[in-house]
Design a protein around this nucleic acid. Structure first.
Length: 111
DNA sequence: GGAGTGACAAAAC
DNA sequence: TGTTTTGCCACTC
């Protein structure tokens, strides 16, 4: 069945554009997609991200920089390990210098 | 076919 | 000031 889930693809595409060593938020992606509060969809999309290649869902965190869905990576430390491997320090499930690491598509892509 | 849920966020009270 | 409710779309039961 063809992928007719536009929002999901949009989310995946944006997440794929997140540079290594940077993180983004559900709200940022939702805003970039002109969603009022579709952040839930972003998270749900991440849930199905395993069906799509190169979707660094570990770079997507909530609005406070917390690795909300770390447990969905098959382990509570996988997400943190991936981020640390990319140079993103994670302490107490939170991204260090989150505001500096934050990659907002609406800003970086200057749409 | 209908109702409920889901890795969130922002507005309202 | 903190807590509660609504919003969105897709997917599952």
């Amino acid at each position: 069945m063809p992928e007719q889930r536009n929002y999901f693809e949009e989310v995946y595409e944006v997440v794929r554009l997140v540079p290594k060593g940077r993180v983004t938020t559900y709200g940022a992606i939702a805003r970039y997609l002109s969603l009022r509060a579709g952040a839930r969809m972003v998270g749900w999309a991440m849930n199905g991200s395993h069906n799509y290649p190169n979707v660094p869902a570990h770079r997507v965190v909530n609005s406070v920089g917390v690795l909300s869905g770390k447990h969905f990576f098959g382990g509570p430390t996988i997400m943190q390990q991936l981020l640390e491997d990319e140079g993103v320090a994670v302490v107490d499930d939170r991204v260090v210098d989150f505001e500096k690491r934050l990659w907002d598509p609406s800003l970086e892509l200057t749409l």
